[in-house]
């Protein structure tokens, strides 16, 4: 039982990170129907910015977090303007291939600049741990969880209560109609990319701290898993991405804890395939049929 609870605690902190990345996927998909394959690499860049801030500039955790979020937001918007905007009326496959190209570019450029090997991330949050009924909870895990929850609450506020959020919701339902109603669609898409990328940047810093390491290809697998989390919850639905992120995180730690860590990725892919076949719109989504 203690071991199970321990896995759940570990799963929640891993799931927080997936959830933060998944939010970006889901927001971008909701608004322009693009699987932003490069999103995982934005998260990687966030981790590197955090690394540079703490190691080379000697900043603390919170300044590093903020700088990483801002930097990633800018990068996200620039990528959208350069690579995705010209393709807004192209097929979804063309857009997906472009996103794959951007992903390749970001990974390879980072490898070129920072080297292909991993860098170790300093312990900016200390290594303090708490023992609750035999379950070990580290300070890092608590901070990751708290930061994630705060960011999610902030996001919910922005989406539900502000003018930008209303515009985002309008564009995701029908971009043309929103345009006719006076919504600036281009600006709204930029905001979406900015917010999604900022969340990925935050996730990058958090994961760097959690695993004490950053590397150019670190975004690849978590990116795909976060996407799976988004699909699981229902892509385009913000609470779905949060739920999916925590779910995938917990499943992964349970498989690692009770089975073999070699199969943890396979299990996540199998979950993806099952959900796509059984309920392709995700747990919280609705099926939409093509109009003939």
């Amino acid at each position: 039982m203690v071991q199970f609870l321990q896995q759940i605690v570990n799963g929640l902190s891993l799931g927080s990170i997936y959830a933060l990345i998944a939010l970006g996927y889901t927001m971008v998909y909701g608004i322009i129907k693009l699987i932003n394959f490069a999103h995982g690499d934005i998260y990687m860049l966030g981790a590197y910015v955090g690394f540079i801030c703490t190691v080379q500039l000697g900043l603390g955790f919170f300044p590093a977090l903020i700088i990483a979020m801002v930097t990633c937001a800018i990068i996200g918007v620039v990528i959208e303007k350069i690579a995705y905007k010209p393709l807004r009326n192209a097929t979804r496959i063309a857009a997906l291939i472009t996103a794959i190209g951007v992903s390749y570019f970001l990974e390879a450029s980072t490898q070129k600049i920072m080297g292909t090997s991993a860098h170790s991330f300093p312990d900016v949050l200390g290594t303090q741990t708490f023992n609750v009924l035999g379950v070990v909870i580290s300070m890092k895990q608590i901070i990751i969880f708290v930061v994630t929850i705060l960011l999610m609450l902030l996001l919910q506020y922005v989406v539900q209560k502000t003018k930008i959020g209303r515009a985002m919701r309008a564009v995701s339902v029908d971009a043309d109609a929103a345009q006719l109603m006076g919504v600036n669609v281009n600006a709204t898409i930029s905001y979406t990319f900015a917010i999604g990328s900022a969340l990925a940047g935050a996730a990058g810093v958090l994961v760097g701290i959690y695993y004490n390491t950053v590397s150019p290809l670190m975004g690849l697998v978590p990116g795909i898993k976060a996407f799976i989390a988004a699909v699981f919850g229902g892509i385009g639905i913000i609470p779905g991405a949060m739920f999916g992120g925590f779910f995938i995180g917990i499943v992964e730690t349970l498989v690692t804890g009770y089975g073999s860590s070699l199969y943890k990725d396979a299990v996540v892919y199998i979950i993806l395939i099952i959900i796509l076949i059984v309920k392709p719109a995700g747990l919280l989504g609705k099926n939409v049929k093509e109009k003939v």
Partner: peptide, 26 residues
Amino acid sequence: TLRLRGDYLAIATLGFGEIIRIVILN
């Protein structure tokens, strides 16, 4: 998987490709 369309199919086949590789790896 081929009941899925477009980008969903892409991700599902990606998943299958990786599963094949992980099975062989183990």
